[in-house]
Every structure is written in C-alpha cells, then in structure tokens.
Design a binder for these strands. Structure first.
Lengths: 269, 269
DNA sequence: GAAGCGCTTCCGTATGTTGGAAGTTTTTAG
DNA sequence: CTAAAAACTTCCAACATACGGAAGCGCTTC
C-alpha cells in the first residue's frame, strides 16, 4: 500500500476536519456526497464519514437527506458572522457605511488586511448594480483593485516589498507588472487615496482610502465600487475628502485600548 | 468508566476545538486570553493551548501577539460566507433584493429556516435607519417577528406544534402567548403574508412572505424591516403582492435538481 | 530586585482515532 | 420485477495521538 499523496496531508482529527470544511467550501452550493468528499480530501471513506458526522452533530455541516450531500452548515455561518468583526471594525464601520451610501449614492465596501490579501468584511449596496472584484467573505490580493492597493500603499516599505514579491506571480496573469504597481503606490501615498479602474470589469471603477491603525500603518480600507462615468477627475477629490474623514473617525475608534489602558479595558469586560 | 460530567463535556480534539470556537464567538470582538478561554470552556490550559494553536496555524483563529488574545479568524469568516449560500439561495435572492430595495425604498432581509429558528443570511439596506430583530448571521426563534413567523405559518401542522412547544418558553418572556401566536399563524396562512409590529422595537414594523420549497413548505422568507408609518393597511397588500411575486420567482429557481434530474446535475458539476 | 502571574514546553499514560473488511441500503441495469 | 452494482454505514483491533499534571520560562507588578 503505497501512499503517493503529496499535498493535502492532514494528520489528526482536527486538521482533517478543517480540510473537509475547506473542501466543502470549495464545492458548489449543493455540496458534496460522501465519496466525492473523500476523494477531494484524499482520505478513506470511513474516516471522512466519522469526521463529517461529528461536524453534522455540531451543525457546522448540514446534511441533505434527500440528496445525500454535505454542505457547510448554518452554525458555521453564524460563527463566521462574528469572525468578521475583528477589533469591532465592522460595528464601527456600519453607521458610516449607511450614511455614506445614502449621501453619495454609491456602493461601499470595507476590506480588512489578512497577510497578503484583503478580505471583504462588510458592504453597503447603493442603488446602482455594481460588479465588484469581491463581495462579503471574498479575498483580493494586495495590489489588485483600489481597495486592496490603498492598504498596500500604507504599509512599511519592507512589508510592501515582501508582499509584492509574493503577489506578483498572482498579478501578472491579469496583466499587471511590478513597475506600474509601484508607480501607482507612489501616487496613492502622495494623494492619500486610490482611484481608477482594474481592467477586470469593463466600465467599473473604484475609489478607496486606507484605515490606519495606531502605528500609522493601514489595517483596512473604505472602498467605493462604482462606474467609470460616476468617478470623474472633478468628483474624485471631493469623494476622497469625505471618505478620508470617515476613515479617520473609524480609525479613532479602532484602538481604545492602549497598553497603558489595558486594565481599564479588562475592567469594562 | 462512568462519565458523570453534566455540562459542556467535549471529548476528542474536534469537539473540543468546536467548543473553543463557540466560546471565542461568544466573547467580544477583542477576544479571549488563554486562561480565560480555558476557564470558559472548562478545559485544562495546556489542552486549550495545543488545540487553539492548531486553529491558529489553520487561520481559523487569529492571535493578537500584543494583546495575547485569541479571536475568530478571517479564514473562518471566508468559510462562513460560503456557508450562508445553502442551495444557492443567497445568490438567487441578491438581484431580487437589490431591485426591491431600490423600487420600494425599504430594507429587506432573507431569513433561512434552521430547526427552531430562522437565520438571517442576507440583507439589503434601504435609505431609512432600521432597528431590526436581527442582522446577517443573527438568529430569531420561529414565532417571533414577521419573517420567522411567516416561515412557521407555512410548515406542516405537526412541525408547527413541535416548534411551538419548543419555542413557547423562549417567547413568553417577551410577552407572547400561544393563543395569540396561533391566531396570528391562521391569519398569515389566510392572507399569505405576515405583517405587524413585534413590540420589541417601538415604531418598527415588518412585512414578510414565505419562500416555499418543492414540497410546499416554507424553507425561508423575504422580509421587510420598516417603520409603522410606512407599513399602512393600504400599502401592505400592494407590498405583499410584489414580495410574493419575488418569492415565487426565487422558489422557482430553488430546486432545479429533481431526483429524476440528478444525473444531469452531476454532469453540470 | 524579588515576587507573582500567566504562557509554554515536556512526557508518560490511556484514550480517541484509524482504515480495512464486512454488512446494509439504495441505485442502476437487465 | 429481479439481479447486480454502487454507495453508504458499521465494526473492531492495532495504533497513533491527544491528554493534562508538573515543571520551566518570560513578562509584568510591587
């Protein structure tokens, strides 16, 4: 019995369960049957059965009796709804998003940095139909799109180099090169906001400002998804000013706990 | 080996990990420190440390080095974003939500049934500030609010009895009794939609229609969250008609896979 | 500078996990 | 309608892994 598996080798019940959850996430909304899931994960069927049954008991996975398929369960969804609220960022952003969407008539996104990517944790849909790079829960490489790039522009140079080195292989297939990315980053740092089109969705454009943490580095961003005819050279600076103001207010509420204030924070809990 | 443990006894790495995730979800947005987490879960600190470290490696949990706190991680959030799309319901609903929000000027929710509760899986915010019972990821007992009750009204009588028996203890503290709930259910079944106020948020009112599955039972609902002065006896029937039409279109796309069509579905994958 | 607290590592034990094989149910073919 | 095939589920003994008390380490506090 040779085992030639090279990649997805997960040892231990926990890691196997996580691998199964990931495979179920990659599957479509109708889920996977037991055999298909076992094959996708490279695990024996009985093992998959045992683990996935535990996950069903815990309601992290839903089982459709009729179809005999497993899908990600609603308990996972409820857990995750809370996960997107790191630092309370989502709670802080929501009222700003509602206000800005109403006053500007645009669709707004909040992207949170996660290593080499930005993850969309909140969205407020405006009246226009928008085709954005991502939606809630989606991930965008830092350097692609106005939002993710506005974050990248306000990171320490060393981190930028590391991220660019890591992400360039992911960006070149879409037609981006390092030189123009670095030029764009310089522009963003100078103006304080990112504007333009991605080239991915024709007719679509965006405008984003970073949300800075206590150390002056970007931890997230506020991003508008709109159309090219609405984001004009005349209007953009105005929008950027309004967005920057909101981002500043959000940032101010982002780190209420200084190291010195730790005890006060613990007491409030 | 007698087990006399009564409460949160989780045996095995997987169940323990899930318990820890739940405890982290219950904690605030700033997370929990190791000792606090261990105490919350009723587990020895070294065990918690080992499990939570695995979860951090898998990015399901985020570790704040400075604060030494653990919070739910973004990978979990990304997983969960997909989990809310059971049956593709969210993808199907989104365009309808955007259209209805724009044309009606109201805030709309999609609630999906989950055993004795309804879970909010999607929202489209209108221009007015609304205080709803729940937001995305939130849970409402079947029988509370227009949305969850519109689902309950279109379930088989046996299920209704079981659910009512289970939920009454949760509803009486808010001032609801079984008799008036059953009367309301009869009204909903007759008119086809649920309207009214919850009494929980003063000035707020709602209107909801069920989304029926292939067997004629409700699997979800489309719900408006609004104010009492906007949901009048004159306007409500009109709104209900529009909503019912949308719900019917959604339902029609909900079960493209008959048992007989299973093979065709598999082929599409 | 010393005491206290909480995080992390260690390691022998035993408990939970593993997966081949057999059993059962559902689906497909004849 | 019957038979063959496929998929799902259960079983169990060998085994690996998770377990947690105790000791070590690092940070903060007094």
């Amino acid at each position: 019995m040779l085992k030639m598996e090279l990649l997805p080798e997960a040892s231990g019940a926990l890691q196997r369960a996580i691998l199964l959850l990931r495979k179920l996430g990659d599957a479509g909304p109708h889920g996977l049957r037991l055999t298909a899931l076992a094959e996708a994960a490279g695990m024996p069927r009985p093992s998959v059965h045992r683990v996935v049954r535990t996950l069903v008991d815990e309601r992290l996975v839903a089982y459709d009796v009729g179809r005999k398929t497993y899908t990600l369960g609603l308990d996972l969804f409820m857990l995750a709804a809370r996960a997107g609220n790191a630092m309370g960022l989502r709670d802080i952003c929501r009222p700003h998003l509602l206000r800005l969407t109403a006053s500007l008539g645009e669709t707004l996104f909040v992207l949170l940095r996660s290593d080499y990517d930005a993850v969309c944790i909140e969205r407020s849909a405006g009246p226009l139909p928008i085709r954005a790079l991502t939606d809630i829960g989606g991930r965008v490489p830092l350097g692609l799109g106005q939002g993710a790039t506005s974050i990248l522009a306000f990171l320490p140079p060393a981190d930028q180099d590391e991220i660019i080195r890591h992400n360039i292989p992911r960006l070149t297939p879409i037609g981006l090169d390092e030189a123009s990315l670095r030029a764009w980053l310089a522009t963003i740092r100078r103006t304080g906001y990112a504007e333009g089109t991605t080239g991915v969705n024709p007719g679509m454009a965006g405008l984003a400002v970073p949300i800075l943490g206590h150390d002056g580095n970007a931890v997230a961003c506020l991003s508008i998804g709109s159309t090219t005819d609405r984001l004009t050279p005349e209007r953009n600076p105005v929008l950027a000013g309004i967005m920057r103001q909101a981002a500043a207010e959000i940032a101010a509420r982002l780190n209420p706990f200084d190291p010195a204030l730790r005890r006060a924070g613990a007491a409030m809990e």
